[in-house]
Simulated scan of single mutants.
Amino acid sequence: MRAEDETEFREFVQGRWPSLVRTAYLLTGDRHYAEDVAQTALARAYASWHRVRSSDNPDAYLRRILVTSNANRFRKQRPVEFPTETLPDRPHHGEDDPSARLDQRQVLLAALAELPARQRAVVVLRYWEDLSEAEVAATLGCSAGTVKSQASKGLAKLRAHPQLADHTWQTTRPEVLNGRLR
């Protein structure tokens, strides 16, 4: 790769790393896997930088690589997880305690992790990344109708999730609960 391309790629990565890891975290549910998937996506973007750079939307191209890299993670070897029926005991905190928000986030992430991969990808890209249906469809390589149906099914599962239904929500983003999830 030429020196100018190296510099351009480095600047591209620096501006997108936090967002890329956040999206990967929402897809994987694990910080370490998220960083691995983000690094894999960036390695693939580096290898085909001329295509990424010349695309109409390099960010969408990179998100597509990220989603595909996450899906490939399951094709190679399914991660070993040991789910339990109950969560470990936690101390009770008041509603204005910052750890209450952390508990809410963990409940939401656990519910997201239970969605099938396609529904989770649609919900994450559509509602956390705030992409349009057309952008999500382009990222996932499917139709806008598929995005609509997968979003509808995913949101229905989240609404019906017992831990989400019983939780009193505190959020700085009321549209997440009022307009989209609830």
Results as ranks from 00 to 15, higher is better:
2 R>Y: 00
6 E>L: 10
10 R>C: 13
14 Q>P: 02
16 R>L: 15
17 W>V: 15
19 S>Q: 08
20 L>T: 04
20 L>R: 00
24 A>E: 03
27 L>T: 02
28 T>Q: 01
29 G>D: 01
31 R>Y: 13
33 Y>L: 15
37 V>G: 02
38 A>H: 06
39 Q>Y: 08
40 T>W: 10
40 T>E: 12
42 L>D: 03
44 R>L: 15
46 Y>G: 10
48 S>Q: 15
50 H>G: 05
53 R>Q: 08
54 S>Q: 11
55 S>H: 07
55 S>W: 01
56 D>M: 12
59 D>F: 11
60 A>R: 14
61 Y>L: 02
63 R>C: 00
63 R>V: 07
64 R>F: 03
68 T>R: 13
71 A>W: 04
79 P>Q: 03
80 V>D: 11
80 V>P: 05
82 F>E: 12
84 T>D: 12
85 E>T: 09
88 P>N: 09
92 H>K: 12
94 G>V: 10
96 D>A: 14
98 P>E: 00
100 A>R: 13
101 R>Q: 07
104 Q>M: 03
105 R>H: 14
105 R>Y: 15
106 Q>M: 13
107 V>F: 09
108 L>P: 03
118 R>E: 12
118 R>A: 11
119 Q>W: 02
120 R>G: 05
123 V>R: 03
124 V>Q: 00
125 L>H: 02
126 R>P: 02
128 W>E: 05
133 E>I: 02
138 A>F: 06
139 T>S: 06
139 T>R: 04
142 C>D: 00
142 C>W: 06
143 S>R: 04
143 S>W: 06
148 K>F: 10
154 G>I: 03
155 L>P: 04
158 L>H: 01
158 L>M: 05
159 R>T: 08
161 H>N: 13
161 H>F: 10
168 T>W: 07
169 W>K: 07
170 Q>R: 10
172 T>Y: 12
173 R>Y: 15
177 L>C: 08
179 G>S: 15
181 L>N: 06
